[in-house]
């Protein structure tokens, strides 16, 4: 359901991002509740990825505030934000190329593992115990997504769709409260997209987390999201359920373009 009142998990208030003279995102308000499945759409260059980057700490918003689970997170470094409970995937898959499928997910357990440098050197029973626990949890996650049989395979030799799924599994391994998916359908064929729709619903139900989906593919977003934000030129032009968004004239204009005459005067 919609986030209303104080219950919002993620709350962006009047966030603006400027790069020199260019305003990438302007005065954006956005709220995501703890169990929401929200879509963020917009034409190329609308500022969708910039929104992702300010939420995950890659950029700091020029002005405005970002609150996550009651804490201000704007300007924190990305790893601190990951600790707060935000995990993400990347538009162009960013797996750890030299690591196996298993190790890619295991690496995400760095967030919670208690052992550090000294424990790894002393290798006392407690260290082995924790490693066994991590091992079991990684395998459990991999099995949920049917990747367990690829355990020791180098991640780069997985199929494209499997690499996308592995990236999601890796993000889930940090046990996030909010999962950000950056164009997960990019480069997928229609059958894989079908599977992705099911996967996103499954993740939301199984892990009971909030999901923010940035996506180009309108069909996918309309089919899976409960609420959609539409960005154009860094400004929010519409917000609402899929039904309302498809009928919104501003959205249609942004996606299909204006009348040629107007476009020229605009330029």
């Amino acid at each position: 359901m919609e986030a209303n009142g104080q219950s919002a998990l993620l709350d962006l208030q009047r966030c603006t991002v400027r790069f020199g003279g260019l305003t990438a995102v302007s005065e954006l308000d956005m709220r995501i509740g703890a169990h929401d499945l929200v879509g963020l759409i917009g034409p190329n260059g609308a500022g969708k990825t910039t929104v992702f980057n300010i939420v995950t700490g890659v950029y700091k918003p020029t002005t405005g505030s970002i609150t996550f689970a009651g804490e201000r997170i704007a300007g924190l470094r990305p790893h601190r934000i990951a600790h707060k409970g935000i995990a993400r995937t990347f538009q162009n898959i960013r797996l750890f190329a030299s690591l196996s499928v298993f190790d890619n997910v295991r690496a995400a357990f760095n967030l919670r593992c208690k052992h550090t440098f000294v424990h790894a050197l002393l290798r006392l029973p407690a260290f082995y115990k924790e490693e066994r626990e991590i091992d079991a949890q990684v395998m459990e996650l991999l099995d949920i997504f049917d990747l367990g049989r690829f355990r020791d395979v180098p991640c780069k030799s997985l199929s494209y769709g499997d690499q996308r799924r592995l990236e999601i599994v890796r993000a889930l391994a940090t046990r996030p409260k909010l999962l950000l998916l950056d164009e997960p359908a990019a480069g997928m064929n229609p059958i894989e997209k079908e599977g992705l729709t099911k996967l996103i619903r499954f993740i939301k139900d199984k892990f009971d987390i909030a999901v923010l989906l940035v996506e180009h593919d309108m069909k996918l977003v309309m089919g899976v999201c409960e609420r959609i934000y539409v960005l154009d030129h860094g400004t929010k032009i519409a917000e609402g359920d899929p039904e309302a968004i498809t009928r919104n004239p501003k959205v249609i204009e942004a996606y299909l373009g204006e009348e040629p005459a107007e476009a020229e005067t605009d330029a």
Partner: peptide, 30 residues
């Protein structure tokens, strides 16, 4: 020391820094 370090969940963190710093940060690795 080097072999023990690398052969641990903590130690695998070093390899993630090498492979992809942006992704490593996003996974909560400083």
């Amino acid at each position: 020391i080097v072999v023990s370090l690398i052969d641990s969940t903590y130690g695998r963190g070093f390899l993630t820094v090498r492979d992809d710093e942006v992704a490593a940060e996003a996974m909560g690795i400083d």
